[in-house]
């Protein structure tokens, strides 16, 4: 599903963000990216949906070399990749339902699809009774559920999560992890960058460890270490 071949990414005037990284992630896998801040986790994720371009190496998503994707096809790539962030990136002037339907609206989904999908996905993430609330009326965990609903409502092949539990207390974080696990069980490949030792150690999934931009460990059923 995702394949990196000797990928290097360097930011101007700063350190190398990713150095000769290679990895192969199969469909339906759940992968943790671990490592200290600045080790290249976010860059790894940003390369996958073409928010960044690699300086060297090739990246394949669903069998296609995304380096050869013309600009106008990038949106189509992104429709197959959901994104979840530490800071949720919800739109404060829209309700839960509107935040979720926004994602469908802007890719031109017809209204009847939106009408049926949005309540279903809100139910799935456990916010069936809060669809008319605004983000600032929700707890952090609930807001992250909205953002997951938004990322998943289009049934993407891949879900990228950049520190999704970073702002949450451990109990709330566990709820989010159970949700991501359920999404993974539907066949969606999940790649999650995290520092959260407890989560990685309890989930026991594949772990890719980055250090100064290099992959230093790739271990199935790994721990944080």
């Amino acid at each position: 599903m995702i394949k990196l071949e000797n990928v290097t990414k360097e930011y101007q005037g700063s350190n190398i963000a990713l150095r000769d990284a290679s990895a192969d992630i199969a469909k339906g896998e759940f992968v943790f990216l671990v490592g200290p801040s600045g080790s290249g986790k976010s860059t790894f994720l940003r390369l996958l949906n073409k928010q960044e371009e690699p300086d060297e190496g090739r990246i394949f998503v669903a069998g296609k070399d995304i380096g050869e994707l013309s600009n106008w096809k990038v949106p189509m790539l992104r429709r197959n990749i959901g994104c979840v962030f530490q800071d949720f990136k919800l739109l404060p002037s829209r309700t839960v339902a509107e935040n979720v339907s926004f994602a469908l609206e802007v890719i031109g989904r017809p209204r009847h699809v939106i009408k049926s999908q949005v309540p279903a996905i809100c139910e799935l993430v456990g916010l069936g009774d809060k669809t008319e609330k605004y983000p600032d009326q929700l707890s952090g965990g609930e807001q992250q559920r909205v953002s997951i609903a938004r990322a998943f409502v289009n049934r993407p092949l891949i879900l990228l999560a950049d520190e999704p539990t970073g702002n949450l207390d451990p109990q709330t974080a566990n709820g989010i992890m159970r949700l991501l696990d359920r999404i993974n069980k539907t066949g969606t490949t999940v790649v999650m960058a995290t520092h959260d030792r407890g989560i990685v150690d309890t989930m026991r999934r594949r772990v890719i460890e980055l250090s100064n931009g290099s992959i230093v460990r790739d271990q199935s059923r790994g721990v944080y270490e």
Partner: peptide
């Protein structure tokens, strides 16, 4: 900008934005 960022991430085309 938040809306535009979300639009780009969920795959809205440039023309749509």
């Amino acid at each position: 900008r938040r809306e535009v960022e979300v639009m780009r991430l969920v795959g809205a085309t440039n023309w749509f934005i």
